[in-house]
Each structure stands twice: as C-alpha cells, then as structure tokens.
Amino acid sequence: MSNYLLEVEHLQKHFPIKGGGFGNKKVVQALDDLTFGIKKGETLGMVGESGCGKTTAGRTILRLHEPTGGKIIYDGETLFDKDNKIAVNMLPYRKKMQIVFQDPYASLDPRMTVGDIVGEPIDIHHLCSSKQERYDRIIGLLERVGLNSEHANRYPHEFSGGQRQRVGIARALAVNPEFIVCDEPISALDVSIQAQVINMFEDLQEQMGLTYLFIAHDLSVVKHISDRIVVMYLGRMVELADSYELTMHSMHPYTRSLVSAIPIADPVQARKSKRIILEGDVPSPIDPPSGCRFRTRCPYADERCAAEVPEFKEVTSGHYVACHHLDKVK
C-alpha cells in the first residue's frame, strides 16, 4: 500500500475536435501521461501557462471529464483504469473529492441565495435530516470561511470577489470533503484580498486535515502554499519537486525560464536579476511538437529532443525532471 491519498498513473485526456472535416480524427492532446501521488494532508501545487492542461488535469482527476487513458486511485480504491476497464460510479466519491473554481463571478448561480448555494450539496447528498440541522450547518460553514448568518439570505451579486470566493469554498466544504482541487481560486482577486483567501485555505487544511491539488499560474503563490510543485508544459509534466527546491534549484529549462520571468517585488533584487527570455509562443496542443514538447522554445534542443520523448525520471531524491540534456542546462 502506498501512503498516497490520491494517485494517478499515465492519466490522459484528449478532446475530439468538433466540426472537423469528414474522417478528421484530430484531437486536442490536453493532458498526457500525468503520473503522481498526493499524500494525505499535503498540498501539491500545479503551475504552467494557460492552455497547458491544468484545468483539464483537475477535472479529469475528479472524472468531471472522463479520462482517455490511465488510472486513478483514491484512498486505495481504483476509480478508473482504462486498461482493466474499471470506471466506478463517482457519486459516493463526490462527497470526498471537491473542486473550487477560478471565477467567483461565474461559478455561483445568481438566482440562488448564498445559503442555498452552500446548502445545495447538502441536499444532493442528503446530509441533513431536519431544516434546523441544515440551517445550522450552512451557518457553520459560512462562519468557517469568515462570513456570517446575515450573509445567508443575500445573493452573489451583493458580494465582493473575495467574498464570493469564500462562498464557493463554503460550498465545496459543505460535504466534508477530504480532497479539494483548487483551480486558480485566487487569480480573479485583488492582491490585498488574495492573502486573506490563501490564509483561509491554509487554516482550513489544518483544521480539517484537507488535501489539496492547488492549481495556479502564479508561481509565487503556488510556492507559498504548496509542499511540492509540478510544472506542466503543453499537457505534460516537465518537473516535480519540493516547492523550495523547485523554485530555487530548478533543473528543467522551461522551469528555469518560468522562475526567472517572474517580476520580483523588490527593486534592488529586480535590478540585479537576469531574465531568461523565451522566444516565441506555446505551440498548439492539436499538433504538439514530436519528442520533447518544449523543444520549439528550448535553447538546448537538438535532434534527439525531436526524436525521443524525454523520460520523466527522478534525478535527485524526490526531484523529477523530463529532459535529455540536464548536463547542458546552466
């Protein structure tokens, strides 16, 4: 038995392209070969540029998208295994595995009161037997995320972005989950409000023993909240390590440029630091480059990179990288 709460192996999600011509079998290779484990109580951060498959990864793990291939194991139970044709009914797991979305404006039903938004999952899973119990539970949840009973009868448009995000979190917590996919939960918030919400995620984790997959494109935030970080590029993992190790001693050429590209909020340091500017844009996942998907922007790329997919392997203890030429990367 492993000590992971969640494990995925070679998880894959390809989307067929609609409206393609006759016999057109093209697909969006949104996610390929995702393999990692998350320990109970751990936060695994996931970073990468837009379109690299973060949201797809989060949703596929929860089987909100049905995987195209691979395996998902949760708490020792196989939820999905393509090769062995296993695909269990997810309903019992919906209580344990939840998701918080990026956009606090779009993810809440504008016609429902905040109390009913938070209460809906309680109703779906028949978690309360009386009206009073339901009410108490809703108020308890609102208080847990820093809101109060007065807020229960109000509508989402009466709330600020940060407050709406709290409502989204209260809703996710309503079923007493163990594992939460947080998909860019603070990206839409003002800087001064982001810190409030980050602290709340940390407090809730401590109080409730939660396990997070924390997705964001802001590496500073991910580094702050995560125990380990996985870096994605065009649907594939390129590096995974302890969060300090990953930001301070990154090995993959993509991670290194990502780290160097972050503007440092310290003028003296910012003046000293050198950015590694990558050329060009991220290619399309419909027809990704052969071999290493990063090779079209990588300063170290050669023929081998075009011919062979680099293996994702452990280079030092707990530090995984997918690159043929780590010796060359300086």
Partner: peptide, 25 residues
C-alpha cells in the same frame, strides 16, 4: 505597507504566514 507585506515571496526559505489587509475594498 499592507500591500507589500501581503504578497508571497518566491525566495522565502521558510513558510511565513502572509499578513493580509483585512476587510473589503
């Protein structure tokens, strides 16, 4: 002051709790 304190730093070695600006805009 609050703004500067509330952002996480990439080079922080230990986990330091963020100091948010409380309240709403």
């Amino acid at each position: 002051k609050g703004l500067i304190k509330s952002i996480p730093r990439l080079d922080a070695k230990d986990h330091e709790r963020l100091v948010p600006i409380e309240g709403t805009p």
